[in-house]
């Protein structure tokens, strides 16, 4: 059986209509994501990366060009694509277990319960089934959100700055967790981020976007072995390469600052 989860984006344009003229947000985006790949999209604010992600999720309508998932043109949101937002968006009136079960057709069935349990274990939230979102920390909430997005086994998981609201240490821990989950689930992931280190730690490819209009400036492969060493020489070189795209050169690639 051929592996599912190939995303092809061809000549994608997106315009927002304003009163006087149309604003071009995305200009001729071309991208292919292979099954099981981890892709990061990095760019400054306003480069259209969130719009791109929302188009792929199906929450944003109206585009020119093609977005194909396993050769099929996208039409609205679908269970085939999971999404994790920057704010965890757990429903405050549902327990963690129920939040995670939201994506299932029949969350009360025995099979569903098992799936929910597996996913809670996957994200390390076993024992928190009956807790409510306000009882969890930011990192735990985001892990619950990831479990919720994965529970119906989507072909592709889209992450919109999922760790943006977390503190630096929690973030580094979550990088390991995310990598572990990605490897275990063997799923295609596309993540939007501001954080160059995060992108290098996690991604197979980094897509650098420039703004107004949003275009793909460069696609930088990250051929490093996992788990990746943030202090390594290769890491620093790739970081230099990414930062160069933003005209931000570090003079001493060995100097690592926290």
């Amino acid at each position: 059986m051929e592996r599912l989860g190939t995303l092809e984006v061809k000549n994608l344009n997106k315009k927002y209509r304003s009163q006087n003229d149309d604003l071009l947000v995305l200009d001729d985006i071309n991208l292919t994501v292979q099954p099981g790949e981890f892709i990061s999209i990095i760019g400054s604010s306003g480069c259209g990366k969130t719009t791109f992600l929302r188009l792929v999720v199906g929450l944003e309508k109206g585009y020119e060009g093609e977005i194909l998932l396993d050769g099929q043109r996208l039409n609205g949101p679908s269970l085939k694509r999971g999404v994790v937002f920057q704010d965890h968006r757990l429903l405050p009136w549902l327990s963690i277990e129920k939040n995670v079960g939201m994506g299932l057709k029949n969350p009360k069935s025995g099979e569903s319960r098992k799936t929910i349990q597996e996913h809670l274990e996957l994200v390390g939230l076993k024992g928190f089934e009956k807790h409510y979102p306000h009882q969890l920390s930011g990192g735990m909430s985001q892990r619950a959100a990831i479990a919720r997005a994965l529970v119906n086994r989507p072909e592709i998981l889209l992450l919109d700055e999922p760790l943006g609201a977390l503190d630096a240490l929690t973030r580094m821990y979550m990088h390991q967790e995310l990598e572990r989950i990605w490897m275990k689930e063997d799923i295609t992931m596309i993540m939007i981020t501001h954080d160059v280190d995060e992108a290098i730690v996690l991604s197979d490819k980094i897509v650098v976007m420039s703004s107004r209009p949003g275009t793909i400036k460069k696609i930088i492969p990250v051929p490093l072995a996992r788990p990746r060493d943030r202090a390594g020489y290769d890491f620093a070189n790739i970081k230099e390469e990414v930062l160069a795209e933003f005209q931000l050169h570090t003079d001493h690639p060995f100097t690592y600052s926290i």
Partner: peptide, 21 residues
Amino acid sequence: ASYLEVVRVFEYGWFRVLRTV
């Protein structure tokens, strides 16, 4: 609206949207 987006992704019918969110 953010909650409604979540359930849109999950392809909820109107009744389930009403009941859940």
